[in-house]
């Protein structure tokens, strides 16, 4: 199986869907002539031209709203946010119009758009460019959100998101763009709402999403080797819809749960998952549910401190040991 980067996997998904459906188009800042601020769309403009790959001015509200309006008539725009942080400029369009038009029309409309782009810290760019708004998106019924942790997942989930008839946010990660995974050459899709057990184990369940799942995977190996702790790692993939069953089955098996995410802790995704576990697996718990989230402050610029602020292997291991204490 070919080893390709997370970036290449996204590009393959976009190209395949452009070929698959004439109504799929890509729009965003620098996506066409410049080949993408992070080179995710490199070569697509050359191959598919102005109609399918469209450079926009720096006007997130306008082009997000335009994508929503176009989707009403059957276009399937894939909107790139250079940083998901920039979606904050388009909050009204994305969090009022994309999410609620269907509801407020009593089901007469639907908004088949994809909003994709990097949503992560750890890149030494300060608080304004380091948002992880999957919790905000998930807080808006009508929106869906996925956080792929690897190249295989991002390709399959991106293709599903584009074919989905509701608005889907795909949260990428600049620190994963250059990482490689095995990705099959034949076409595949990954359903929304299906978590992936990255590692089986018996002593502790770690639930994570996005790049944190990869950090947790490394931490799990260390926990096994150095502490003899057998970790089961649930990679959520999809936040809304959420695969509650996989989380609960794992926690019922291990009796302990550590929740890891890059969100800030207050009202983060894991706050909801923690609630779920206490509600539906209370009798199986042998210890309180613990969380490792971003340290609760605006994202700090200083690299050495930011590397500590977002969950890293050391902090995940410490959290796991608390669960087992």
């Amino acid at each position: 199986m070919p080893l390709i980067t997370y970036r290449e996997a996204i590009k393959q998904a976009l190209a395949e869907e452009i070929e698959h459906d004439e109504n799929v188009c890509i729009m965003g800042e620098e996506v066409a002539q410049y080949n993408g601020a992070y080179k995710v769309t490199e070569g697509l403009w050359d191959k598919y031209g102005d109609k399918r790959v469209i450079d926009t001015p720096i006007s997130e509200a306008a082009f997000s709203g335009l994508a929503i309006g176009a989707s009403c008539l059957g276009i399937r725009p894939v909107v790139e946010m250079m940083f998901m942080s920039f979606s904050y400029v388009a909050i009204d369009q994305l969090f009022n119009n994309a999410s609620f038009c269907r509801y407020m029309s009593g089901g007469l409309m639907n908004v088949p758009i994809v909003v994709r782009g990097p949503a992560n810290g750890g890149t030494n760019v300060g608080a304004t460019h380091s948002h992880t708004p999957e919790n905000m998106v998930a807080n808006h019924p009508g929106l869906k959100v996925v956080c792929p942790s690897n190249a295989y997942d991002v390709k399959g989930l991106m293709k599903t998101a584009i074919r989905d008839n509701d608005p889907v946010f795909v949260m990428e990660n600049t620190l994963l763009y250059g990482e490689k995974w095995e990705v099959p050459e034949e076409e595949y899709l990954i359903e929304l709402g299906v978590a992936n057990i990255l590692r089986e184990g018996n002593d502790l369940t770690i639930v994570a999403h996005g790049r944190c799942a990869m950090s947790a995977l490394k931490a799990a190996d260390i926990l096994e080797a150095q502490h003899g702790i057998s970790v089961e790692l649930v990679d959520l993939r999809s936040i809304r819809p959420l695969d509650e069953n996989t989380i609960l089955e794992s926690v019922k098996k291990t009796g302990r749960a550590l929740l890891v995410e890059e969100n800030k802790p207050f009202c983060g995704v894991d706050a909801q998952i923690s609630h779920l576990i206490q509600l539906k697996a209370f009798d199986y718990l042998d210890a309180p549910v613990h969380r490792v989230s971003a340290i609760d402050a605006p994202q700090i610029y200083a690299k050495a401190l930011e590397d500590w602020q977002i969950p890293n292997e050391e902090r995940i291991i410490a959290g796991a040991l608390k669960c087992l204490a």
């Binding site: 109504n23 509200a61 709203g65 929503i68 309006g69 176009a70 009403c72 276009i75 009204d92 407020m104």
Partner: peptide, 25 residues
């Protein structure tokens, strides 16, 4: 008829999008 929108000017990019779709098609 595509609404009926509650936030001032929030419908203006949507209107552009409807027209964009006409051109696209």
């Amino acid at each position: 008829y595509w609404g009926g929108h509650g936030i001032v000017a929030g419908q203006t990019p949507l209107g552009a999008g409807l027209a964009f779709a006409l051109k696209y098609k």
